[in-house]
Design a protein around this nucleic acid. Structure first.
Length: 995
RNA sequence: GCCCCCGUAGUCCAAUCGGCAGAGACAGCGGACUCAAAAUCCGUACAGUGUGGGUUCGAAUCCCACCGGGGGCACCA
């Protein structure tokens, strides 16, 4: 399609963006020449579909091999970047670091014979486009698509070897159609605890109907049978089991954003991650995903994936599984029990009081009308009652104080507060009465919202006990000389026995097991596992998101109960986002905690109402419905895009099972018996350690349980790339000044801008810091290959590093040297020697470099690979100053350079006379014979210090090396005739003589 | 407060199993080319590995403590 223009015509130095001026040779590798070469090769790769990756079946199967018989599953490699959100600001030089890194690896693997699947999509639903729409009235789709085009152009300019046919955006109707379909599968499933996996809800219904599974206990208690329930009642029972369900639950309501947020989107100080607005806990009816059902598998299966330990740790921490016991404490004069969760049941004998969370409903049930005086009839401690006349007053006053404090204030003020409820509970191990307090250091949201307090072994309880004058009783023997307060370490139990059980002397683990057995036998408690993980709040009051494929009967339910969400049939998909006049949800003053969410879709009245005979509501027949007007959160599309890349044109399924098996299926032969399958390498920033990666794993497991996919994990290997950060500069007022205009003082002592001193700080690249550098600028000034090489040379992929524009020239100089080695700068002719034989030195270096980069590339150590290539080029420049580089050296040099600098390499490869792209050319293989040196130089250490050197044949035995070392004149002199105490010979390394 | 990661020339970074601290780049310095400059090329100096102990024939590498930087969690019972 695109004819190859002669370099001579377009390589006009006068048009060079970097304006090299007169005297530059006409065929020097300048930015202008690089730009011309790069555009030409990008066009050619696109026209020839060089990087189109075949599928084993379907529309992407090779035309001459429709059943994929030529594809070897053992050689496939699925390489993936975390896809970007296409923001209006475009890419800066930090963004493509990972994209280039994966591209280099993909190109290397392709030349190593692997079938590489690599593409790039867009996570395109999200708040910024919607906020822009609210401000300007521009449809978010218009903004989003323009941004995607901009990103595509920027990415294309970098020469990434993507299969562009597979690129998808989560906002494509054909994409979100399947996001909705997957939602319906999740909604249509329940988690079978006994089998530990999701099953279709119809199977649950059948088990209830047949009696194979007992009904929930409240129905059993009412003596009701399945068949006796009305249809809406049955539906409500089933809804209580679904993996996607509506629930009235305490959620994070953010008035300023006008939406609810997931726990993961709220910061530790109780504000929105986006915008930093106050967030309030409110009970609202919202969609939830039952991710907690998968807590154990999400935690356990981390053992089987190749991920950074830090990310695994963050996920484990977020899931927060802890083993412990639930223990019931009878309340004196009440029929209620206070139930607590503890991870230290072994310390039960040390419990001296109890605490329940202020919001805990049991508080009102157990608080007596008047303050008791259980023992002596004397006045209660004023610290306990807060000076109030009755428990009810004290509790109400305390609750007001707690409610008035923000999460941040709670966090800062760590001194313990609380108030006595007036109730006493009984310690089941010894019958001691324990006063029950309310205090805000106990959280309603964790465990049972109540604790037994053991000040002897818990510092928080110690602090509280000290404030309120409560007894402290140690039940674990601290070590000799322990002078701390609460002792949380290991040790034998003490003070822990009654008539029927004794823990004394037992280590903690045995004491726990013993007391749990004892409690269980008496019905006072049992072993229990707790999780920090909460169900995933899945609805948002936003416009720019996937609509839920769900509707509600317009007339309500026949029994008058709360309305039941009805799944739309597959044939109704996609539920297309309607056009609206107003994109904003109703927002409120940031601190208006009593406001309630209102979705923008609710105003699309024509879209909201429809009539249909829904299969999910068979009793009703043809009827009026109203659509769900919430939309899905931004995380939905990213939960499964790795599956759609595989089969983007499939209109029958989200992904063909055979295609999924080929690219993602488990490979126990290569990765061991427990291999879960998944993407071979997933590269992205560590900021998604919890949210995206946890959600995607959850969806994958549901799809796996339902038999739609063969991989039980989405990403077999995860790699976190580092960040590119940048210096920013502020003037004396603290205002940021343009970083590119700042100059360093000659003596390196400081920095100035327009002559005034400025101070330097280090941080993210961004508009607000006025330190943005874009890949577009770098490509214009140096060319994409130089830019790529620079980014890859500055450090290993996992390292964060500062951007430094002035260093980029080093990469350009290297590429100019390579170009000059092969091409005459005056007339553009090839200057390689067709028949020349390199010297042994050159040959040895060449093969050492081949060997080295073959290790560096797959390890993503591109900085050291580049260094080796530079070393080789520097050697060749010295060896062949007048040209005449042998072809046998030029070709491997070009091939080795090609993953890093593909355009330049393709151009040189073509000049070397090869008509086809080098993308599938075999990567050079070292000649082992040239890797072994003929002689080895050994440093000779005497007492660990290098004193001499000897050169011996590489074949010398240890004894020969030892003899040669001891015969060395300097060694003889140093030893002065004495026998060395010891001689250590490290083969190939050194000799150390100990006097 | 707890957990994880990282500290090597002025700067960014290298250094298989514990075995000669230096591959590469920038900046610096000297030189070539130039009327001059830019660009380009050639040549060079620079640290003993954050600090203090320990193990070892030998430590950047292993262990302990501390200091500094980054990240995560944070009253999670």
């Amino acid at each position: 399609m695109t004819a190859q223009p002669d370099v001579a015509r377009s390589g006009n130095p006068g048009s060079d963006a970097s304006e090299p001026g007169r005297g530059v040779p006409p065929y020097r590798y300048t930015a202008a020449l690089a730009g011309e070469i790069e555009a030409r090769w990008q066009d050619r790769w696109e026209a020839e579909e060089t990087f189109a990756t075949p599928n084993p079946t379907g529309p992407l199967a090779p035309p001459d091999d429709p059943d994929g018989s030529t594809l070897d599953p053992a050689e496939k490699f699925y390489l993936m970047d975390m896809f970007p959100y296409p923001s209006g600001a475009g890419l800066h030089v930090g963004h493509p670091l990972g994209f280039i890194g994966t591209d280099v690896l993909g190109r290397f693997l392709r030349m190593s014979g692997r079938t590489v699947l690599h593409t790039m999509g867009f996570d395109a639903f999200g708040l910024p486009a919607e906020q822009y729409a609210v401000q300007t009235g521009t449809h978010p789709r218009t903004t989003t698509e323009a941004n995607i085009e901009r990103y595509r152009a920027q990415i294309r300019r970098l020469g990434l070897a993507h299969d562009k046919r597979r690129s998808v955006a989560t906002t494509d109707v054909e994409f979100y159609r399947w996001t909705q379909w997957i939602f319906l599968q999740i909604h249509g499933s329940w988690f079978d605890e006994a089998q530990g996996r999701a099953r279709p809800i119809a199977e649950l219904e059948a088990e209830f109907a047949s009696g194979a599974r007992p009904l929930p206990s409240h129905l059993v208690e009412q003596g009701r049978a399945w068949s006796a329930l009305s249809r809406p009642e049955q539906d409500r029972v089933l809804d209580g089991f679904r993996l996607a369900y509506l629930a009235e639950a305490p959620v994070n309501w953010c008035p300023a954003l006008g939406t609810v947020l997931s726990n993961e989107e709220v910061t530790a100080d109780g504000r929105s991650e986006r915008g930093n607005f106050p967030v309030f806990r409110r009970r609202l009816r919202q969609w939830m995903m039952r991710i907690t059902a998968y807590a154990d598998r999400l935690a356990d299966d981390l053992d089987g994936v190749d991920w950074p330990e830090s990310v695994k740790a963050m996920q484990r921490n977020w899931i927060g599984r802890s083993q412990g016991a639930q223990v019931r404490f009878r309340v004196v004069g009440s029929d209620r029990d206070v139930e607590v969760f503890t991870t230290r049941p072994d310390t039960l004998f040390g419990a001296t009081y109890m605490v329940v969370a202020p919001e805990h409903p049991i508080v009102d049930a157990i608080a007596p009308a008047a303050w008791p005086s259980p023992n002596t009839g004397e006045e209660l401690d004023g610290r306990w009652t807060g000076g109030h006349e009755t428990p009810a007053e004290a509790i109400a006053a305390y609750r007001r104080v707690v409610a008035s404090r923000s999460d941040l204030e709670r966090q800062e003020a760590r001194e313990k507060t609380g108030v006595f409820t007036g109730a006493w509970a009984v310690n089941p191990v010894d019958g001691r009465p324990l006063p029950v307090f309310v205090a805000d250091y106990v959280l309603m949201g964790y465990g049972t919202g109540a604790i037994m307090a053991v000040p002897g072994q818990d510092q928080r309880d110690w602090d509280f006990a000290t404030v309120f004058g409560l007894p402290i009783r140690r039940t674990v023997q601290p070590p000799e000389g322990f002078d701390g307060e609460a002792y949380t370490g290991a040790g034998p139990a003490i003070n822990s026995s009654n008539d029927s059980v004794s823990l004394d002397g037992l280590p903690i683990d045995e004491a726990k097991a013993t007391i749990i057995d004892w409690l269980s036998a008496r019905g006072d408690g049992e072993a229990v596992v707790q999780y920090k993980l909460r169900d995933w709040l899945f609805s948002r009051q936003r416009y720019w998101g996937e609509p839920f494929p769900v509707a509600y009967a317009a007339d309500g339910e026949t029994d008058g109960g709360p309305s039941i969400p009805r799944a739309l049939p597959d044939s109704d998909l996609p539920v297309v986002l309607p056009d609206v006049d107003e994109y904003s949800p109703k927002t409120f003053a940031p601190d208006d905690r009593d406001s309630a969410p209102e979705s923008p879709l609710a105003r699309a009245t024509e879209w909201v109402s429809f009539a249909e005979d829904l299969p999910s509501d068979p009793e009703r027949g043809w009827a009026q419905y109203v659509r769900e007007t919430n939309t899905m959160p931004q995380w939905a599309g990213s939960c499964w895009y790795h599956l759609r890349y595989l089969d983007p044109f499939n209109s029958e399924r989200f992904c063909d099972p055979e295609v999924e098996r080929f690219w993602l299926g488990p490979r126990p032969d290569r990765f061991g018996p427990g291999d879960p399958g998944g993407v071979d390498l997933y590269v992205g920033g560590v900021e998604h350690a919890v949210l995206h990666l946890l959600y995607a794993r959850f969806w994958q497991k549901v799809l796996f349980d339902l038999g739609y996919v063969s991989a039980s994990e989405p990403f077999r290997r995860l790699f976190n790339q580092g960040y590119i950060q940048a210096w920013a500069y502020t003037d004396h007022r603290g205002v940021y000044v343009p970083a590119e205009e700042v100059v360093e003082d000659v003596d390196g002592s400081g920095f100035t801008w327009n002559g005034q001193p400025v101070s330097r700080e280090y941080g993210k690249m961004g508009k607000s810091l006025r330190n943005v550098v874009t890949p577009d600028e770098m490509c214009a000034t140096y060319g994409a290959d130089t830019f790529r090489l620079y980014e890859m040379s500055t450090g290993p992929m996992e390292a964060s590093r500062p951007w430094s524009t002035r260093d980029v020239v080093g990469s350009q100089r290297f590429l100019q040297r390579v170009w000059r080695l092969l091409v005459d700068e005056q007339d553009g002719s090839l200057r390689v020697d067709e028949a020349g034989e390199p010297s042994t030195d050159t040959l040895r270096l060449l093969h050492r470099v081949i060997d080295g980069v073959r290790t560096d590339f797959p390890a993503m150590h591109y900085n050291t690979a580049a260094a080796k290539l530079i070393e080789l080029a520097n050697h060749l420049t010295k060896t062949y100053p007048e040209g005449g580089l042998p072809r046998s050296v030029a070709e491997p040099l070009v091939l080795m350079l090609s993953p890093l600098c593909p355009h330049l390499a393709e151009e040189l490869w073509s000049k070397l006379g090869h008509p086809r792209s080098l993308a599938y050319e075999p990567f050079p293989v070292p000649d082992e014979a040239l890797l072994v040196e003929e002689t080895v130089e050994y440093p000779i250490q005497v007492n660990g210090k290098v004193r001499s050197r000897i050169t011996v044949p590489a074949s010398a035995t240890e004894d020969e090396v030892r003899a040669a070392a001891l015969a060395d004149p300097k060694v003889v002199e140093l030893l002065g005739g004495a026998e060395p105490r010891k001689v250590i010979v490290v083969p190939g390394r050194l000799v150390n003589i100990v006097k």
